[in-house]
Design a protein around this nucleic acid. Structure first.
Lengths: 171, 171
DNA sequence: ACCTGAACACCGTTCAAGT
DNA sequence: ACCTGAACACCGTTCAAGT
């Protein structure tokens, strides 16, 4: 809040006329972060395979989160507080629903997908911030690190999509 | 740090003789949190089905994280910093490997599982803390909320396990 | 070897007062 | 309507000095 105020050339207390507190301000940010999906947006509606639609939605969400420092943390704390719009989970659920799954299954799958996405990108961004701060001096690497984060992300999404596929073939 | 020091009846600065900083102290905590798996420990080795082994490992990890306030956040920040032991991801990978998957697939799957677990439990615990603080006064609920968190967790794990199963049947 | 005391450089938030 | 000034109640961390 103090740094934002300085950037706006006002006193920190000025912010509290516009927002009741920091979390409410962050919720506004979170909505804009997820609303600005950089790629795959227009293409998503044209995909005839529901699996590709889910993959595209997940990838676009990752890109949107990565575009802002601490994007994943801001979005996930906002989600946890019940602030922010339900659009993110709704869009994922709609992509899943194209596979012919019922509303409940779609919503649960979207939730699982979102938890994976937020967990994955959170980790990615924490690492980015830590070594930009030079905290990881010893060159120590997390057991969760991948040389190709995008591929590791896609692997996880594919696993979840595969699970849905299997559950469908069993009906 | 200040509250911990007070609980130990020492000055905050005394802690810095024992630990270089807060994160190192939290890393020690994180190792103990995941080392203390409450249930399913002994039983895990006796399970002949790799899918049950993975499910049991994931459930035990969730229980361990839930047993401490902010457990998921402490563990995930420690993992991101490359501190703490790689035991958590190793044990998940070993459970997956019982399905006959190669080492690389097992490790990647374990990573995806762990990201899901941390994402899910993080959300659970943030909610717990928020409404114990009375922040969620309006009764607002997150679009990620489930009436049965354990079932939602199991659903996500099953999706990931199912994805692995499908990839195996395709070989 | 282990801890205290005092300080440094921060936080988010409140609230009377200004314009 | 919008902002300042000053304060409150916090943080993690450092470091000389004590025992």
């Amino acid at each position: 809040m103090r740094r934002l105020a300085a950037a706006l050339d006002v006193q920190p207390s000025a912010l509290y006329w516009h927002f009741p507190n920091k979390q409410t301000l962050l919720a506004e940010l979170a909505d804009r972060i997820v609303a600005a999906r950089p790629a795959g947006w227009a293409g998503t509606d044209g995909l005839d395979d529901w699996r590709d639609a889910v993959r595209a939605e997940a990838a676009a969400l990752r890109d949107a989160l990565l575009a802002y420092r601490d994007g994943a943390e801001v979005v996930s704390s906002t989600l946890a507080l019940g602030l922010g719009s339900p659009e993110t989970v709704d869009r994922l659920a709609r992509a899943v629903a194209r596979g012919g799954f019922d509303a409940e299954t779609s919503r649960r799958s979207a939730t699982a997908l979102l938890h994976f996405v937020l967990g994955h990108v959170s980790h990615e961004q924490q690492r980015l911030q830590y070594d930009s701060l030079g905290v990881l001096a010893g060159g120590e690497s997390s057991p969760l690190d991948e040389d190709d984060p995008a591929a590791a992300f896609a692997f996880g999404v594919d696993l979840l999509v595969g699970g849905l596929e299997l559950s469908r073939s069993r009906r």
